[in-house]
Design a binder for these strands. Sequence first.
DNA 1: GTTAGCACTCGAGATGATTGAGTGCTAATT
DNA 2: AATTAGCACTCAATCATCTCGAGTGCTAAC
Lengths: 344, 344
Amino acid sequence: MLTNRQLLILQILIDEYIRNAEPLGSRSISKRQDITFSSATIRNELADLEDMGFIEKTHISSGRIPSEKGYRFYVDHLLAPVNVTNSDLQQIHSLFHDKMSELELLIEHSAKMLSEITKYTSIILGPEVYETKLKHLQIVPISIGTAVIILITDTGHVEKYTVDLPIDMDASDLERTVNILNDRLQGVPFSQLKSKLVEEVEGLLLTHLNNYEKILDFLVQLFQTEKSDKVYYGGKTNILNQPEFQDVEKVKALYNAIEQYDLVQQLLHQDDSTGIKVKIGAENLLKEMKSCSLITASYSIGGQHMGTLAILGPTRMEYPRVIGLLDLLSKDLTRVLTDRYYSK
Amino acid sequence: MLTNRQLLILQILIDEYIRNAEPLGSRSISKRQDITFSSATIRNELADLEDMGFIEKTHISSGRIPSEKGYRFYVDHLLAPVNVTNSDLQQIHSLFHDKMSELELLIEHSAKMLSEITKYTSIILGPEVYETKLKHLQIVPISIGTAVIILITDTGHVEKYTVDLPIDMDASDLERTVNILNDRLQGVPFSQLKSKLVEEVEGLLLTHLNNYEKILDFLVQLFQTEKSDKVYYGGKTNILNQPEFQDVEKVKALYNAIEQYDLVQQLLHQDDSTGIKVKIGAENLLKEMKSCSLITASYSIGGQHMGTLAILGPTRMEYPRVIGLLDLLSKDLTRVLTDRYYSK
DNA sequence: GTTAGCACTCGAGATGATTGAGTGCTAATT
DNA sequence: AATTAGCACTCAATCATCTCGAGTGCTAAC
């Protein structure tokens, strides 16, 4: 276990390194007012901390920087929760003041605002459509054989598919189908559309339509296509301000990684349990992110997980501040969205 | 005017510089087989070309590189049109083979493919909704006082607005309104929706609805909101491979500029006349793009301008190849879209 | 008009000295 | 036994110096 003095030194070292991005030596630590012992003592402690793997040297006679294990320890044990500053608080609340009617717009603005106040890159996984309920379905033929199918959810989200219609389906078939579907499927969560369709609607279609088989196949197909969540970014260029990303090759690798939506989705989805999650460096699975940390929080509507907020920064990130901000915003977002869309 | 020899030398210099990104000296030019005169002669010619402003030096004893005026001359007078290579041709055609039903998807894939085969960054201004015709309008209430309004165009595009409904509008009002609008406005181009509404529909609403004024106001408001085109990007990180963008500051400035959709739209919209347009360096108005060139082509449906294809690269760009590709793709795209959506 | 020749310039690299911030270790001090 | 002072040592960073080579412009000869 670490002694109090070691804890203090580790804390100072990480705080300072996060601030300045420069290796810290025993002498500069000893010069702080809250340090009462000499640089030689600190040297010994630093050597011990290094042996335990919490800090490392960049070269043999350099100062120390935190290791990933050091950051992990810092986040798990040393983090003094900081209050969100007043100006940050105002920024966040202003999001909700001018009540934005579009959910997507609200999310987009949240991403932008997060990146602006943190100076890091924000990533938000958009409202999951999976557990929202069908409000209305519409099929609009746009030319011979093709039509646009529109599904509208109770959160005002619109899903759109352009499809080829079964060739022998005429206008009246279409109308009857739409009516039946709207009648039977309204209020059904997207996740259950397919089973409801097979269980309840199949019979109705059978009695009302000629070639019900093709249409049913077609609808089953439609309802089981994976709906992937949208990914919103804010401040992608903020990465370029970090001293650890002055190398264009590193930037390229990271950008290429975070523009692959499926990868990002996987990354942020890892566990959608509530609470703040911090992934440091290599914990992130993507090798392009080994000098980055990712802090995530999730937001929900009426207890139902809806999406994920994330901040991507260097491992040398202002953990306390970002954690505080994400915690606040995720709770606010959850509250506002629940108010708006969960009103029974 | 330039002599034939000067033309030859300028052509060689620009071609080589585009290939290697390194200043070219008289000696290396004289070593080519197609050059029959000595380096001293070339030195004299280079000095003349420099006096005329077509080429410049990076420092006093360096080789020459093309100036913007040089590139301009090259593009306007020296460009030998090159044929699109077979493999590029296949790539482009494969876009259309697996017939994609979603127009947006086709555009998105086009952007990706363009960036992959050119190794530059592609920007596509996505189908303009302005001249497409209304196919169907739907209003779906999603909670008390709010509704989603959906407009579907004849190209299968869906526009969505979440709006606050006038408080005293009941379900039957809504239904009547929707019916009237669909009846009267189908087939009307978006650009004329507002005038048609005022001219033809106002009277009908008056006779069928109680509080028609509020609703009319509301619809006028809706129809006159600017519909800004979507911007699609491909290969944004390709910029980082260019030797002229090894400086992170430059990259940041450019990225910040091209992520401002309104700026980009303005930039690509500048003239939507047909044909290929080449904007070199400072011709681009944005100072962040002064070391870039932008080559644009437009695509249309049935003669109606729909959007713009663009390639963004360093001024040292492979003009002939990119021009050939854009020309081909824009024409193919126009043909395919016209076939698909202009069938009377 | 063309070319050979020459003095000159400048960037890019290599080399070496200097500095300063850091280390580990040992011996003295508390 | 813990702490500290002192010292030899290491290494990155910086700067001056040098060399090399690719380039130039200019002049005089072809």
